[in-house]
């Protein structure tokens, strides 16, 4: 798990999103497994923008890019470049 994924898990844990879960699979759907909903997703985006000083364009917020740890982590890494 890379640094961005670890940060996301830490954020989700600290904000009560994991509901007792201790770990997350990198390729598991965060919405289908009941970790986040659309509002939770927006909170996560807000956190990532401030943590990595990036702007995440809304057009890339799609299930393909933002529904798994690996997808989000890849999107953030691309935006950091």
């Amino acid at each position: 798990m890379n640094e961005v994924s670890r940060d996301i898990v830490q954020f989700l844990k600290s904000r009560g999103f994991l509901d007792g879960k201790n770990s997350l699979n990198e390729h598991e759907s965060l919405t289908e497994t009941g970790v986040i909903d659309s509002i939770g997703l927006l909170q996560l985006i807000d956190y990532l923008e401030s943590r990595y000083k990036i702007e995440i364009p809304m057009e890339i917020i799609t299930p393909e890019n933002f529904d798994t740890l690996s997808g989000i982590s890849q999107s953030v890494t691309n935006l950091k470049k």
Partner: peptide, 11 residues
């Protein structure tokens, strides 16, 4: 039960 995700239950 649990139709909404964990954090939504606080909201």
């Amino acid at each position: 039960m649990d139709a909404f995700p964990g954090f939504a239950k606080y909201r």
